[in-house]
Design a binder for these strands. Structure first.
Lengths: 135, 135
DNA sequence: ATAATTGCAAATGCTTTGCTTGTGA
DNA sequence: TCACAAGCAAAGCATTTGCAATTAT
């Protein structure tokens, strides 16, 4: 059973065949596919799964905290399995490759900034866009 | 003449009546209107200006570096005049209010992170989402 | 059994575009 | 003058939704 399928069980999310396939694919994905790409991968297992179902499932999983949605540049939402510990992203503007990173110092400063402005930090989005340094 | 109109002159962007109106409204705006809202404001001055023109102009100005486009949560692009010095945004998740802030330390750390990963930082997006602390 | 889920196609919301007419430099 | 811009309506794209048929618990 995939790790996402497991999470569904724990959270009482009803499991259909389609959802199991989507759960499995997303559990195995190490990148950040958009819905089209995900549908393509899912279709390889069961070509009768419609893209509407993929959209609905991905939203369902997101609301259950199982998937994380990202709106990087490009106009299409991209998904990844919710990580155990939060990370941010650096996007290679040339290749589109996405690198994950963690920086506790930045996190801390973000909290301080919010606090200073009289706010409790609820969420944040940090995306770095860069080009590879050639050596 | 509005400050944006001035920038257009300097950059050789042709000025039409419509563009002058849009330039003026954006120069005076202290918030981050979306295209609909901007069109509404523009229509108050000249109700014959179409929303297609607003879309085209806003894109033109952005490509000329005169306006900055933001994709905050909500699905609609929002615009502000390109600031002299870069700032980031904190969005009040309850009211939608947007607060601008500058934090040099965070900027510096971002550069360091990128560098450490072998990248030259070209652009970045930092958005904080928070709720007001009641006292 | 039955409330929830699927597939399909139609609808949505934001944004872009083709085409004809109008206009700034 | 004449390449470029505006207005309009139609098209485009990602995403959502209504509905009838199907399915998980």
């Amino acid at each position: 059973m995939s790790s996402i399928e497991e999470k569904c069980k724990n959270k009482g999310v009803r499991l259909t065949d389609q959802r199991k396939v989507i759960a499995k694919i997303m559990s195995e994905s190490k990148d950040h596919p958009d819905v089209d790409e995900l549908h393509k991968r899912v279709s390889y297992v069961d070509k009768k799964i419609s893209i509407a179902t993929v959209y609905r499932t991905v939203k369902l999983f997101e609301e259950a905290g199982i998937l994380e949605k990202h709106d990087f540049k490009g106009g299409k939402a991209r998904y990844e399995q919710s990580p155990d510990e939060h990370h941010d992203h650096l996007i290679d503007i040339n290749s589109g490759e996405i690198i994950e990173f963690v920086d506790k110092d930045i996190e801390k400063l973000q909290n301080e900034v919010a606090k200073k402005l009289g706010y409790k930090l609820v969420d944040h989005k940090l995306e770095l866009y860069g080009s590879k340094i050639k050596k």
